[in-house]
Design a binder for these strands. Sequence first.
RNA 1: GCCGGGUUAGCUCAGGGGCAGAGCAACCGCCUUGUAAGCGGUAGGUCGUGGGUUCAAUUCCCACACCCGGCUCCA
Length: 661
Amino acid sequence: MNAATLDVTLPDGSVRTLPAGSTGLDLAQSIGSRLAKAAIAAMVNGQEVDISVPLSNGAQVAIITADSDAGRHVLRHSTAHVLAQAVLQHFPGAKFTIGPAIEDGFYYDFELPDNKTFSDNDLEAITERMRAIVKADQPFVRAEMSAAEALELFADQPYKCEIIERVTTGAADGSDASEVSGDGSVSVYRNTESFVDLCRGPHVPSTARLGHFALMKVAGAYWRGNEKGPMLQRIYGTAWESKSALDEHITRLAEAEKRDHRRLATEMDLLSFPSELGGGLAVWHPKGAIVRKIMEDYSRYRHQHGGYQFVFSPHIANAQLFETSGHLHFYKDGMYPPMEMDNGTYYPKPMNCPMHCLIFRDRQRSYRELPLRLFELGTVYRYERAGTLHGLLRIRGFTQDDSHIFCTEDQMADEITSLLDFVLSVLRQFGFNDFEFKLSTRDLEKSVGSDEIWDKATTALREALNRHGVEYSVKEGDAAFYGPKIDIDVRDAIGRKWQLSTIQCDFNLPERFGLEYIGSDNSRHRPIMLHRALFGSVERFFGVLLEHYGGAFPAWLSPVQVRVLAVTSQHEEYAQSLVKRLRAEGFRVDTAEADEQLGKRIRSAKLERVPFVLVVGDDDVKNNTVGVNPRGGEVIRDVQVDAFIAQLHEETRTETAIGNL
RNA sequence: GCCGGGUUAGCUCAGGGGCAGAGCAACCGCCUUGUAAGCGGUAGGUCGUGGGUUCAAUUCCCACACCCGGCUCCA
């Protein structure tokens, strides 16, 4: 190279020589005009920068295009700036705060003058202003400056000043990441004479590169997520690289909406939340209850075969118990209020663990009994704050598939390993195959137990994950005060993540309850307690399943597995005999009388997502056959009844084993 | 708990200071049907609850309950 040129290395390892002073855009141009058109930013030596930044000699450079994750991130962040400019136009005197890109979109938080809030009409007007800004082809012009200069620039924007001050005092953290980089420098991006925003960048070169966006919803949000801080007004939006990508996203949202478990629960007559019952409390209708029962039966079956012992415990307990467990100290806000009785104060239980500790403690325990695995489908009540309730996913009365395992320190690692096996095998049965693991470690601010035990437990959890050879993320300081844990997220059929199972170590309750066992050394030792929920809550898991399958439960779970339809009333008798026969085989079968046309009855069955519709007419009566119309499959005529029954047994085979309990 | 929005027939939703509306579902009748909506009729409502304003409130105002979208929370 010489002074007039520079060399850069591309992601494929090739080196390109460009005139000195060339920018990312020049590079893209030199590679191809299509790339140049798609380029919106550059990755230079691992740092995202504007496409207009001159490249340095020897740099590693990748062009960021709009249709990549990084590219969409940039254009979403840029769209957030456009939103801010539009809002400041629409509400003169508004204060703007932060506006990051998020999954599928962006948001921006504002404090509006006179405590105003956004209305739907405002969203339309703001969208119009945004379109005008996009059309105006405003450049994003970066400038770097000292904190003092920035403070002057944003003198009438207190939230921006607060962020700048946090940079200068080194207090900036992840929540500031979209606005400023962590290195103490301050940069701004100016679109027009009057609109400039604090930002680390990078941004698209001009607002004309944006435009495939939609403002989605308004919401309140606390400044810095602090409940005691001011309530800001947030606008959420989504933005994409093309019209078609935006449309696809909107379609995906509509699809997700159709799977909403609350909608399906009503449509399918599974359960309801009568308001007279109170918030967050559900009643299960027969069709929902049968699915739930099958889930629970399966869970019991697996636990029975997994070395667990079943226990039961009451729904309320004397306050003394929760004094001992510490719940009244640590968890009182989450508990239903007490009932004053003539012999003391009673609380509905928010957890089952104290009860299980009492069972352990009831008599002297030997190391030979460990690990002792207690299991209960235990119904608990938690006073969730009103605004947090959400269908079955956040509810006030629910049933945990709760087990508590008492073991020695030395057994911990093996026990956790086999627990992971157990959990994953059950989740797979329910149709989940995509898992993510999170290890939460000690929060030094609030935790009980010695360094030694925390290390040992955390190592045991880590080891179990390693033995499974699975990837996991570590959430530092995210553990409960009583011990580290593994949380398992599953991905559902349309890619959404749900946190279900959890495996938690507990050093606190054994201490509080004074749990002990006699070791092989004939002296007393304190057991480790493991909390393990697999479904998490039966209700929540049911809700997730419902969304996962979009209501089309696999045959073994379906409330109605087979519907028999007579073509005309002359075939009713045959239909009834089939119903009887299939019921005798253990299947859930019903029929719809021929007082509506066949097409209509089939349609109803399909809408109810019945896995198999059997249509029977003259030919079938004569030949002892059925016409099989499977959900999502092709109709097959003239199937021998015995053959269909065999097929149905096969279809539900692994699961019917639980019928033998 | 906080910020918005909402609650009208079983469901989905329209309406709006003066007799309460549609589609689907339900019920009744006709049709006797071979693989996703046959035809006709009937019934269905304290417009979430309580208070207020008004000659008059389902409609406007206030409170409460419940729901929805977020925030916070989920030991």
